[in-house]
Design a protein around this nucleic acid. Sequence first.
DNA 1: GCCTCACATTAACATTTGTTAAAAAGAGCT
DNA 2: AGCTCTTTTTAACAAATGTTAATGTGAGGC
Lengths: 191, 191
Amino acid sequence: MNEVEIKSVIERYSAISPASYEEFLKGLEELSVSKGTDFIRKDGREFYEYIILDGICRSYLINPSGDEVTISLFGDQSVLSPYITRTREGLSTLNFQAITDTRMVKFSASDFEELMVQNLEFREWGNEVLKHELAMKVSREIDLASITAKERLFKFRELFPMFENLIPHPIIASYLGITNVSLSRLRKTTM
Amino acid sequence: MNEVEIKSVIERYSAISPASYEEFLKGLEELSVSKGTDFIRKDGREFYEYIILDGICRSYLINPSGDEVTISLFGDQSVLSPYITRTREGLSTLNFQAITDTRMVKFSASDFEELMVQNLEFREWGNEVLKHELAMKVSREIDLASITAKERLFKFRELFPMFENLIPHPIIASYLGITNVSLSRLRKTTM
DNA sequence: GCCTCACATTAACATTTGTTAAAAAGAGCT
DNA sequence: AGCTCTTTTTAACAAATGTTAATGTGAGGC
């Protein structure tokens, strides 16, 4: 396990002293997931927090019409939505899927909750991750409610450069709240 | 201060033993806000958590086009979005406004954070409030991204019965992600 | 009762997005 | 290169939503 790589992702959110890492690193497990695999299933029992080292993942749901709705996208070197935000009574509220082959580490969410109580640095780190998640959600709410699909596409390109060439367009479209046909039309008028 | 009333709102989220209340109740302040008043301003310094005893409030933002976008609605006997979800570096990320005359209690967010560390019941309560907030956000994301405005109106009526007759329609429209003219059109076809 | 003001509805037209189906382009395999 | 399968683009038309402006409605003050 490459500790330097992991620490570098963690410190994108807030700084952790070497002493604090000790206990944390012990609990880590590596995890590789191949393209197209759901590694967390809605209504399945869930126990972990996840950090993506490389690869692209998404959370999604099936809506009442049977269509997949992409809720969030996660790229290289990011932390997945915190456990608390995607779990009710131990069961996942969302599906999480690897869009490309993905390398992750995972660790026990309950152990981490305890670590947050005891360790101020990890408490702040956890809060930073949570705030980031919420800021993304609020931003998306505003965009979905108040700007056009074309503007959302521009913002998507800023937020996730390269994703447009790396992941299937129906996934991007469902993230933007439009059909893939509409996405193709918008691409034509903006390239 | 009517402790029974306050406890009844709190226990809508999770149970708290009488012993745990002791310290909590001491820190409460009452607050009355009249219709139309912003009681939290975006980019203003913020310190409190809020519980609405009665009245209707909303969070909103001004988008780049200068339009108000309603993010969330809060009715009688509910807890406002937790501090952590609406604050960055001590400054509010959203405006909060009383849509009708509103009676609330507020308490220090930092004291409460400390209480959560020390008291398991309030930790669970805080987590329940947070999960509820997130569940609402995910639900809204899905709806904005994948169902029509007409369907969102039906869901709004289920989630907030009576609000349609109590608050201005431009606010409802901006919550649904449409114009007030479109809302009026939808109302006509569905009543 | 009548004014005024704010709010809601209606109408006419423009624009955006959805739907369905066909055509084109791209990716892997032999 | 040629074949097959998947993904993306195009086209034609339908439906939903936006824009602007006029009309209607209701509540409160005089």
